[in-house]
Design a protein around this nucleic acid. Structure first.
Lengths: 212, 212, 212, 212
DNA sequence: TATGAATGAGCGTTCATTCAT
DNA sequence: GATGAATGAACGCTCATTCAT
């Protein structure tokens, strides 16, 4: 009975997947609606039956995936874990997102989270919610005495998220190896770097910060 | 004597500045060549007297500024400083670049360093040279016993650079306060986060990493 | 059933006809794509739905018509006729082409067959095939003893074709009367001139050439 | 004393020569004024000191050369020669013109004598004067009983001129060999073809023309 | 004379979007 | 739902011409 609705939903998904493919390879601007239609195997007019505009496609692509990230972060935050482990789970989720669908994450990172004049602005609320969520985890870590409190949670969160996104950027640009084991170690490396610091643990606390 | 040549060079600079202005506000794609000409107060044809194409303008904008970053990094690396202080100087240079000309750095970050399909690809060699330079500083820190050596210098460099760029992104998106004191503290925060770690110093070595 | 495809093909033909009209009056360079669209009564964007470029329109215009000329020449050559009658048929075909669609032949002659730097170069193979075909007819006439053999077939062919094209040029420039009877006599005149010669038949063979 | 005027005239000639070079290689439309200036080794603004416009350059190029042709034809006509010999001298002059300065003749043939919408129209009077001159020679030949009178002098003239121009076209397109001996034989071939006819002299009068 | 910076009209082309079928 | 013909705003770029120096 729902076969018709199913078929429609199926087409819709096909178009979204095609858009990911096209945007990842050509970029949002260079990727034409007709390229998406070709990739999806439909007439390009049909794209407008399912979506209001080319922008709307990227909007949906981003929002859907980002909602998962927000949901995952929210859920992680509610668990009874150390701040560090929470950050590890968030980083893991992002890395796995890339691992599972690199094209989609590439599109999101390249076309949205840094696109200050276009989609980044449109989705600013969603994006900053993720940052806030991470900042909250950091703040909780500080409150719990797990994290030092001389670093603003906002800055800490940005540093953490930036480090993670940059690793993905490294994969996107083919500057970092992207084998299975690399994905597995990446999360650990990032968390270890941001939480443990690059410096030797024995080396006492940052003289620089103290003396400054 | 060279007044005519000077005037020409001056116009050229004016067009570049106008391009920065336009690209920062409208983005590279939405920013029209005629917008740049208007902003520079010249006929749009003149833009093509000084530049081969719209692309060439952004290329030059990026390459000129990035060359300064590479040069500064190279110079920093040659100094007799701890790895941490070297990273601090590099981060400081990037932050100051933004402080001195936020529009230009916004353009670079938004339109180039993450633009995997367009300018990022074109300038990949220059971009990755910066990453390599940072990785070298990390590696030297490891060799000197200042940094732990269980984190790949490449990943460490990416984490460090990503953290810095994300702070700038925060400013660009107006998500982080961007007053004078903020600029001043930012460098310290990032370096302290990446080198010292968010975790409490007393907390010994990362249990996670060790047990994993 | 194929009404839609038919309508599309019809539009395509309409655009080609409009292009002939525009190119014949303004020349290829001065004739704008939007002029063609206006003449065809369509939006100028549609021109690019059917053709790759403005150049492609002229390419097709030429190639289609020239193919007919080549085909006609080929067919004529296969008939059991004297060389003179074959040339008469070829000349007649060209004259009739002009008579039937003077604008198209004007475009071909003005924009292609003499355009050594642009379209003439592009279509050199097609153009020279026509010359070769004529040269072959001349050569066969020589072999058969119908034509004298002291004139290179290549030169003879060029002289013949040049004479024909020049008559058309005369019509194009309005230097020769172009009434129905003129078209009818033109072929005869050209053939008679080139085959029979302007000189008096009784006058024996070229004293000049011999004495020179 | 006139050294300054001489120098100026020298520059002027240099620019004309450069224009010939450029127009012959790129065509009138594609050849830019700045290309001409480059070729002449002067600033492109200077071109406008000597010429009113780009068009004016080609106008002068054509008119100067064509005036020589008209003058030569006029002079030939005044000589006491057979019509055939007069035509031979005219053809020889044209062939020699090409031989002496192929680029200039290429420009004239490609950009003017067939350019019905642009320069051909502008110079129609000059062009048609040449045709008339040739037609007069033919007519005189008929009056003198040297040429048959069943071919209109106008058509005969067009056939003759077209044949000559087509030989030049063959050289321009590299379809005919263009060695010294080729130049020498070319005139003879054309005159022999047009005056003597391709047909065997013995062959009596054209049956076709008579019966048609 | 000579330079080349400056102008701006003009054109080919692209492509998101609409809509009749 | 599905097609793809049709639209037209928009934009990068060219280049003849002008003119201050």
């Amino acid at each position: 009975m729902t076969s018709r609705a199913d078929a429609a939903a199926e087409k819709r998904r096909k178009i979204l997947a095609a858009a990911v493919h096209v945007f990842a390879r050509q970029g949002f601007n260079a990727g034409r609606v007709s390229d998406i239609a070709d990739q999806a195997g439909v007439a390009h007019g049909l794209v407008y039956h399912y979506f209001d505009s080319k922008d709307a496609i990227l909007d949906e692509l981003f929002s859907d995936r980002w909602a998962l990230l927000l949901q995952a972060s929210r859920q992680v935050d509610s668990l009874d874990l150390s701040a560090r482990d929470k950050l590890a789970k968030v980083a893991g989720f992002i890395v796995d997102s890339y691992r599972y669908d690199p094209d989609l994450m590439k599109v999101i990172i390249v076309e949205v989270t840094r696109a200050a004049n276009t989609f980044g602005q449109t989705h600013l609320a969603e994006i900053s919610e993720a940052y806030s969520m991470i900042a909250r985890i950091v703040a909780e870590g500080q409150t719990a005495g797990e994290f030092r409190d001389d670093i603003s949670p906002d800055y800490g969160a940005m540093a953490f998220y930036g480090a993670v996104e940059q690793i993905l950027t490294g994969w996107i640009f083919n500057l970092l190896p992207a084998g299975d084991e690399d994905f597995e170690r990446a999360t650990e490396f990032v968390v270890e770097t941001v939480c443990g610091g690059l410096g030797m643990p024995s080396r006492g606390r940052p003289a620089t910060a103290a003396s400054d």
